[in-house]
């Protein structure tokens, strides 16, 4: 097993853990954290699979996509956190409407 595949497998595990948390937990902060873990897994798979070039330089295209993706993920997280704070300010609970408890 090459290191590239090991990293890709770790990425898949991170993705699955993130999806588990996203589905299971109701609190929006947990969901946002879960999405970030899930996204990190995807990035790790992309970067790892780009390294299957033997001794040559790894494929730069997935690397560039991941850099772009990281910035987008960070800004999406910031927007999500702002939305969460607003939801909490409006309803007193940082959960989605269907999970709200009266």
């Amino acid at each position: 097993m090459t290191p590239a595949f090991l990293y890709a497998l770790v990425g898949i595990v991170l993705f699955s853990i993130g999806l588990y948390g996203l589905i299971l937990y109701k609190h929006l902060l947990r969901k946002i954290l879960a999405i970030n873990i899930l996204g990190s897994g995807v990035f790790l798979v992309m970067v790892a699979l780009a390294a299957r070039t033997g001794d040559a330089v790894p494929d730069a295209v997935p690397h560039a996509m991941v850099i772009t993706g990281i910035v987008v993920a960070v800004s999406a997280t910031a927007l999500a956190l702002a939305l969460m704070l607003r939801v909490d300010a409006e309803t007193g609970q940082a959960v989605l409407p269907e999970d709200r408890e009266e």
Partner: peptide, 13 residues
């Protein structure tokens, strides 16, 4: 799925 990918792939490099 990842495992069945070829171990060498140049992609667009």
């Amino acid at each position: 799925a990842v495992w069945s990918l070829p171990t060498q792939a140049l992609g667009l490099s």
